[in-house]
Design a protein around this nucleic acid. Structure first.
Lengths: 299, 299
DNA sequence: TAAGGTTACGGCGATCGTAACGATC
DNA sequence: GATCGTTACGATCGCCGTAACCTTA
């Protein structure tokens, strides 16, 4: 058993058990990986893969168990390398942040700018995705840190940290009936609603708030980001329920906004990362920066 | 980085950072390990060890962090090997059980005998030690499974399973005043007491029971095992507080026994093993056997 | 017949062993 | 001077690459 074989198994999973592609990824010829796999299975004494002819078509029960350990080893290997890099120069590195549109546009700009000033040597990649995808990306090491509001509490392989709290608000064209008068849950149900897609930016909290009252919103458009919602509110297709911080009093001057904190409970945006994943110092500082920005927002 | 280097670091810890001894354990010459360590540190870019001259005298901060990952990798490697062995022949293997005197003598014989009948190919090693040592042995992989009553709940790297409950009892020579009359905590404090050492066989439970009542036992002898206690009870040095199941009505016919369940709360004997440690099938069956024996005892 | 996998063999490099050389107690 | 670690160099063994072959969609 050696680390190259471990790496091979890991890559085989990434390549849908295709030896040729795995060889390519490892920058060696296909025959080499074929042999290494044979040697490894021979050493263990049992096959790790189900085969159809010569093709690998799945994992044996043993293979599945082994793969879990492989993942552990790989993580530990990466951690060692990260730790060592930290000691060499904690001002160089790459930070992969996965987040949703709302966070990327309305929360991250400030802390990221401040972080970049302090750590000019760190390259930051921001990947925008849905909350489910964010979590997948953490697991597949495509992202180091995820920032979002939904889902992350369910996964016990993640560490989540409370970042900031916020409320939803309703936006409507200037002069819209909802601009004035009492703002009740019941009244909201009488308008066509434009809001976030399932799994985005507190959508579940919105649903829950109305369900509990036995009410149902007439959601005629569900979008992954606020800009789309605003666009259709402009067209007077209905009223938009969005995150309060996504309203820009200057850019959105032609839209009215009213707070919904008395109707929809607060949402909590969290920072998440893999429990087993060693975060380089600069990543830890990045998180600090996020928390500072969250505090500032509150004040 | 490769697994031999990982293994080397692991063994260096076992040998108090002695390269020569590490080389011996790895069955290679000393110069080889010296070079491998250099290569590894070179690859990481920073030293892992504090040196005094050429001798290794301790770990650098980086080294400490790395060692934790090394342990993870090593565990995963062992797990893979265990899993593979299971598929080859789950009737061959070695089982290291660490336990205290009381369990080894009064609880384990039956389940072990039954286990041996079912799995004649498994060699069982029983190591007797103090509860603290048991836990150390789990961590150092000297033992696979520990069976004891104390301490194991504090360590969150362990999985503990409830095995059986039991009570303490008091033993005294036939004709001793305590053989008759009411058995109260207060009365017990009037006799010299012989019982277990700190950390053994529910000693903490005994202490606690009397402390809570504002009483203090006059413990004139503390032993790690029941036999020593019995011996001195024979000499009429005092009364013995022992685990109920350690009294053998035949062998101990010249000793009286009275139950203390109304005075000292029940103790719980547990089975413990490392959370990260894959237990071979036969080990899992061994645990089953223990649980069956525990149930039988109850009935 | 193209794509995926295996087998055979030669070459190269990583790692070992021998051995001679510090350094520290 | 005994123990522990480093350095130099030749030898070996493991792993890769080439290339021919096998199998299945």
């Amino acid at each position: 058993m050696n680390l190259n074989q471990i790496e091979l198994l890991r890559i085989l999973q990434e390549t849908q058990l295709n030896l040729s592609k795995a060889a390519e990824k490892m920058h060696i010829v296909q025959s080499a990986v074929s042999r290494q796999l044979q040697l490894f299975e021979e050493e263990l004494g049992s096959p790790l893969f189900e085969r159809k002819g010569k093709k690998l078509i799945g994992l044996t029960p043993l293979g599945k168990n082994v793969m879990a350990e492989i993942a552990t080893i790989n993580q530990a290997k990466l951690n060692i390398q990260s730790m060592a890099s930290d000691y060499l120069d904690s001002n160089k590195g790459i930070l992969h942040v996965a987040t949703t549109h709302t966070q990327a546009k309305y929360f991250l700009p400030t802390p990221i700018q401040r972080f970049r000033e302090k750590y000019p040597g760190i390259r930051i990649y921001i990947v925008q995705a849905s909350p489910e995808q964010l979590i997948d990306q953490l697991h597949s090491h495509t992202a180091d840190i995820a920032i979002c509001t939904e889902k992350v509490d369910d996964d016990n392989k993640l560490i989540t940290r409370h970042c900031y709290e916020w409320h939803h608000a309703v936006i409507m064209p200037r002069g819209h009936p909802l601009c004035t008068g009492e703002l009740t849950p019941e009244r909201l149900t009488t308008f066509p609603i434009l809001t976030y897609s399932h799994g985005f930016t507190g959508r579940s909290t919105i649903e829950h708030a109305f369900q509990q009252r036995g009410l149902q919103l007439d959601i005629i458009l569900a979008a992954a980001d606020t800009d789309v919602i605003k666009t259709y509110v402009h067209f007077d297709m209905g009223v938009g329920i969005i995150a309060r911080m996504a309203y820009d009093s200057q850019a959105d001057a032609d839209l009215g906004i009213r707070d919904l904190s008395h109707i929809i409970p607060k949402s909590i945006t969290k920072i998440a990362y893999l429990k087993q994943h060693y975060l380089p110092l600069y990543s830890q500082h990045f998180i600090e920066e996020l928390l500072i920005a969250a505090k500032d927002m509150k004040a």
